[in-house]
Simulated assay, not measured.
Amino acid sequence: MTKNYNFTKNELALLNSNNALRLMLGNQEDINPERVLRYVRYEYQVEKNQVELIKLQNWVTENQKRVCVIFEGRDAAGKGGAIRRITHHLNPRFYKVHALPKPSEEEKGQWYFQRYVSHLPNPGEIIFFDRSWYNRAVVEPVNGFCTEDEYQRFMNEVNLFESMITNDGIILIKLYFSISKEEQSRRFEDIRTNPLKRWKLTPVDEKAQELWDVYTEYKEKMFKCTDTKKNPWVIIEANKKTKARLEAMEYLLNKVPYKQ
């Protein structure tokens, strides 16, 4: 049975765009105009936001501002994908993405925040952390990578540390990508069965479902202690990747006063 569609004039114009026609021609056996329309709308809004992000970056460089955006969330929450969308058209000379590996033996003997301080933004620069110092609030204690004393010391110091860097002029934005246990399981399975993605799975990822409740306990402690008026957490509901990416972009655009 053929389904009747009742598209508006504007919707028909979007369906006649090059992107929409390419999607429909590439999947002729199961053409779903409604799904294509949703995707084209999403791509249109992404591109619109990316234009504004270029303006934001120009404001940062011209005014020698410093912006630090941290992305936190459970494994497979979509942090990396969101960062790629945000930075896709930015000038690579004036931003960096840091996904720091586990600390070296030398770094283990340093003040915990030291390795992150060296990666904070210079004047005119935006820094994106794909996981940040908040590893010590959740991932490390859950997996036994730090002692209880190290964890408690971090929780006692982190708000002061963030106050110090924001008092010095850094614009700090803290995003947390939140997904359900079922969605994380589905994404892990997709990664396991895709040879192009399988490299992403780590031993920590493999235990994430088993330790779900423990992660939740430490996550809630983190929010309770570090969601401050000056440096609040922004929770991005990330079960739908497209929606989460747009929300992250739009919060960034609203938070940084680049239109002044």
Rank of each mutant, 00 (worst) to 15 (best):
C225Q: 13
V158K: 01
G144W: 01
N239W: 03
T8A: 08
V67Y: 01
C146E: 05
N6E: 12
P232H: 01
S185D: 11
V97D: 01
R192I: 09
R198P: 00
E47D: 10
Y215S: 02
Y39C: 04
F223V: 05
K9P: 02
L21A: 06
E125D: 03
V51L: 11
N254F: 06
W111I: 05
K240H: 11
P33L: 09
L56F: 13
I171Y: 00
I31V: 15
R198C: 00
I173S: 00
F161C: 04
V138R: 10
Y5I: 06
N16L: 07
Q260D: 15
G73A: 12
P103G: 08
C225P: 00
N10R: 15
K240Y: 11
I173H: 01
D190I: 13
P203L: 06
I126K: 00
Q209C: 01
K259E: 13
E247G: 00
M1A: 12
K197R: 12
A13K: 15
E182L: 09
K181W: 03
R198K: 12
V40E: 05
T8R: 04
L120H: 14
L100E: 10
E107S: 09
Q260C: 09
G144M: 06
D205R: 07
T242L: 05
L196E: 12
T228C: 00
L15V: 13
F154E: 07
E11Q: 15
K255Y: 13
T226Q: 05
C68T: 00
E250Q: 14
F71S: 10
E29V: 02
E62H: 10
N159D: 02
I191Q: 02
N58C: 04
E62A: 14
F113E: 04
V69T: 05
L25N: 14
V67G: 02
G78R: 08
N254H: 09
Q110N: 12
P121L: 11
I235T: 14
E182I: 02
M164H: 01
Y258F: 15
N49W: 03
W212Y: 05
K207Q: 15
W133T: 12
Q114H: 11
Y39E: 15
V139T: 09
V117G: 03
A99L: 02
M222P: 10
V46L: 13
L120W: 04
R198E: 06
E125V: 01
N122H: 05
Y44F: 10
D149H: 08
A99Y: 07
T8N: 08
V60L: 01
V256H: 05
W233Q: 02
R186K: 15
E43N: 07
S178K: 15
